[in-house]
Design a protein around this nucleic acid. Structure first.
Length: 488
RNA sequence: GACCUGGUAGCUCAGUAGGUUAGAGCAUUACACUUUUAAUGUAAGGGUCCUGGGUUCGACUCCCAGUCAGGUUACCA
């Protein structure tokens, strides 16, 4: 234990000896939050507030400190003769302690809105010193708690001392709230489907495997909830969505966390054109709600949500950036193309993965402005309906902003015989060594055999969307507790 | 996965071209101070220099291995 921690424990014991409870059980009445008090400043208004002591300036018989609550900061002014327990304030309170104070609001000689404290109670004694982040009158910040690893491991500390971190999570919440409101207005129903699944399906990814003791069977943590939501559509709901935590057993970097959030939405009797219109409306709504603007500046780029988003077929996109027309190519010629462009082309990769790779490598990062990439080849879209006109392609789109894929959507395949055939093709890929290929989900096939209305579905990467809208470059910054290796 | 960089006090960082007792600022402790603003002044305490091994008379410093992290790159949403 550090010297400072020992001293705080000694103080805690002294407080106990005086007969004061350091962790009282009773609720503490709060009359207002700091932000409201400051915004609606009324001289000598009495208030009751609570929060954390962030700074202490003791000066003989008068002391100042700074109290932080969820909304803001306020300076506290304490005078010895106005308060019964001044010695406790002076000797036994620390930065980090959570206290409740009652007093009146006034302005100091230099005009800082402060509370003149008449009564002070300890609500929670803090036993560890906080990092000391200080700022001067010009607002310049010194000694920021900046060690990225420590900030993420001690996120609670990060939230206490770094105000901008709190802002990011408020924004995240508002984005999700906006989406939920938007979908509810479309008369969609929010549902919940299993995270523990017997068969991992709905996407191409390596799952986490766990074990159910009393059933004595392995279970997978879901990599997607698509197949379950479609079962719900079979059941007769016509518009459903779920904010799903998905799990994929892959590496961790600044755009990947093993668990992440995807919004999946399915609407019966609609197709992917309809879904593109909805996606466009949804994004415009979110931008207006968050920034009150349909243009967002990211670094030196301005991303505009004002115009209609372009819809570009994937083969045209590849042709535009490589000069190669892949339409109608067989797997071998495609493999040659990839080889010539120095792209990965090992034997486990089927035609779908080759095209996916080609696009990701050569095209994806070119789409800075919101763009729909549409009509993907059938081999890379095992759950997607065949295109109504274009042979070998599907009715699918991926949506890009700032060079990142934000959403993936299609007219859902509802032909059970065709779906089984596609699953079997996936099985073939698995046998060739693709550990991300899909399993055959016979219960899902059975559901389709009962009849699923035609429908459009979409998965929106919530974390990526939040990263974009909060202008952060790492997923760890927009997750409260990102995954990292354990440390003692 | 590959490559590069880093790990020193509660926090932010210096530092030793191998050599008595490892430094600073904030924070902490003591004293002073009744409107301070990164409060101030005086004094004091606080370290497994990431872990293990090696070289050396001597390692926080050099070498090797490990570990954790950051960055670049590859793959995946």
């Amino acid at each position: 234990m550090s010297e400072q921690e020992i001293i705080r424990r000694i103080k805690l014991n002294k407080i106990k000896e005086i007969g004061i409870e350091s962790y009282p059980a009773a609720s503490y009445h709060i009359s207002s939050c700091v932000k409201k008090l400051v915004e609606n400043y009324k001289e000598y208004a009495i208030a009751n507030i609570a929060g954390r002591i962030m700074r202490i300036r003791i000066m003989g018989n008068a002391s100042f400190s700074v109290l932080q609550d969820h909304s803001s900061f306020i300076q506290l002014y304490v005078r010895s003769e106005k308060i019964s327990n001044y010695n406790i304030v002076k000797k036994l309170l620390d930065i980090g302690d959570i206290i409740g104070v009652k007093g009146f609001i006034f302005k100091t000689s230099i005009g800082e809105i402060s509370m003149h404290v008449k009564n002070i109670v300890i609500l929670s004694k803090s036993l560890r010193p906080l990092p000391q982040v200080k700022s001067d009158r010009q607002g310049k910040i010194y000694d920021v708690f900046s060690d990225i690893d420590l900030r993420h491991r001690l996120r609670y500390v990060d939230l206490i001392v770094n105000e901008s971190v709190k802002t990011v999570f408020c924004l995240r919440s508002r984005i999700i709230e906006t989406i939920r409101e938007f979908l509810n207005k479309l008369h969609c129903l929010e549902v919940e489907t299993p995270i523990l699944q017997n068969i991992s399906g709905g996407a191409s990814a390596l799952p986490f495997i766990t074990f159910h003791k009393s059933l004595n069977i392995p279970l997978y943590l879901r990599i997607a909830n698509e197949l379950y939501l479609k079962r719900v559509i079979v059941g007769g709901f016509e518009g459903i969505y779920e904010f799903a935590r998905d799990f994929r057993n892959e590496g961790i970097d600044r755009t990947h966390n093993p668990e992440f959030t995807i919004l999946e939405l399915y609407v019966a009797y609609k197709d992917y054109y309809w879904m593109m219109d909805i996606m466009e409306k949804l994004l415009k709504t979110i931008c207006m709600k968050i920034y009150n603007n349909t243009e967002i500046k990211i670094g030196n780029k301005t991303i505009s949500f004002t115009q209609t988003f372009p819809r570009i077929p994937i083969d045209k996109s590849i042709e535009a950036y490589t000069g190669i027309n892949i339409s109608g190519m067989d797997e071998d010629s495609l493999r040659k193309v990839c080889k010539n462009l120095h792209l990965k082309d090992d034997k486990t990769m089927g035609k779908g993965k080759l095209i996916d790779n080609l696009f990701s490598d050569k095209c994806e990062n070119k789409y800075i402005q919101p763009t729909f990439i549409i009509d993907h080849p059938i081999e890379m879209s095992p759950l997607t309906k065949k295109h109504r006109k274009k042979r070998g392609l599907t009715e699918r789109f991926e949506f890009f902003i700032n060079g990142n894929e934000i959403a993936n959507s299609y007219s859902e395949l509802n032909d059970p015989i065709e779906q089984l055939k596609r699953f079997k093709e996936q099985l073939q890929l698995a046998e060739n060594g693709d550990d991300e290929a899909m399993f055959i989900d016979y219960d899902f096939i059975r559901a389709l055999e009962f009849g699923m209305p035609p429908n459009a579905g979409i998965g929106i990467g919530i974390d990526r969307l939040v990263m974009f809208l909060t202008k952060t470059t790492s997923i760890q910054e927009i997750l409260l507790f990102p995954q990292s290796k354990t440390k003692a």
